[in-house]
């Protein structure tokens, strides 16, 4: 059948729109996974056992099963219990929770490695345990794990392609739409790959800048 890249310009607007949705879903899920990760880490370390133990189980299940399977559970499971969320929201929740669990693992280790004296000093000057965590310990821990969290966010971008399977019109599904109209899978998947690659490079660039800023402020 051969290759013919001249079909691309006619469908470039669909693919570019898909690109914007991919960026939107990545940013939304990244924010959810970042704050969710902090929240999960605090629960995993400080919540009473009755919350902590079921939570550990949840964490273990999310780390031991594929994201695609989790997306099916969230998307179809929510419908089953009567919550009819748009695919985009289900996708953000699925991606966000999945990576929140991975971020939480990083943040837990970081919280435990913050010097004990920080908590003691904060308590001595009159902060409550919650305040000390929120204002003194957690900010230091989060700063220490920004680089590996950045790697997780880049992995999140690539895994955002999976939400095409539950029908979110992001980059991958947009490419599939264009393929449906042209029967040119190779050209459009390569195009999609190129867009992902460029977004990926931009994220790496931002990551390097943030890391440099953190290094400077130390």
């Amino acid at each position: 059948m051969g290759l013919d890249f001249s079909v691309i310009p006619g469908y470039i607007d669909i693919v570019l729109l898909g690109c914007l949705w991919t960026i939107a879903i990545t940013v939304a899920a990244a924010l959810l996974s970042f704050f969710g990760g902090i929240f999960f880490a605090v629960i995993a370390l400080y919540a009473p056992a009755i919350i902590r133990l079921p939570f550990r189980l949840f964490e273990w299940v999310f780390m031991g099963t594929p994201l695609l399977l989790q997306l099916f559970l969230i998307y179809f499971g929510l419908v089953q219990i009567g919550v009819d969320l748009p695919a985009f929201v289900a996708g953000v929740i699925g991606l966000g929770l999945h990576f929140a669990v991975y971020n939480s693992e990083l943040i837990q280790t970081a919280i435990l490695s913050v010097d004990k004296g920080q908590m003691e000093a904060a308590r001595t000057v009159g902060l409550s345990r919650g305040q000390a965590l929120r204002k003194v310990v957690v900010p230091q821990a989060v700063r220490a794990v920004i680089p590996p969290i950045g790697n997780n966010m880049i992995a999140l971008l690539k895994d955002s392609a999976l939400v095409s399977v539950i029908g979110v019109s992001e980059l991958t599904l947009s490419a599939q739409r264009a393929i449906g109209a042209t029967y040119r899978p190779f050209e459009f998947y390569i195009l999609a790959a190129a867009f992902y690659y460029v977004i990926n490079l931009c994220m790496e660039w931002v990551q390097r800048r943030i890391e440099r800023r953190i290094a400077l402020s130390r």
């Binding site: 899978p185 992902y196 690659y197």
Partner: peptide, 19 residues
Amino acid sequence: RGTPALIQLFILYFGGPQI
């Protein structure tokens, strides 16, 4: 490492016959 594995799979499986 810079592009989604799903896209790579699609390129090979759906795009492969073209090449």
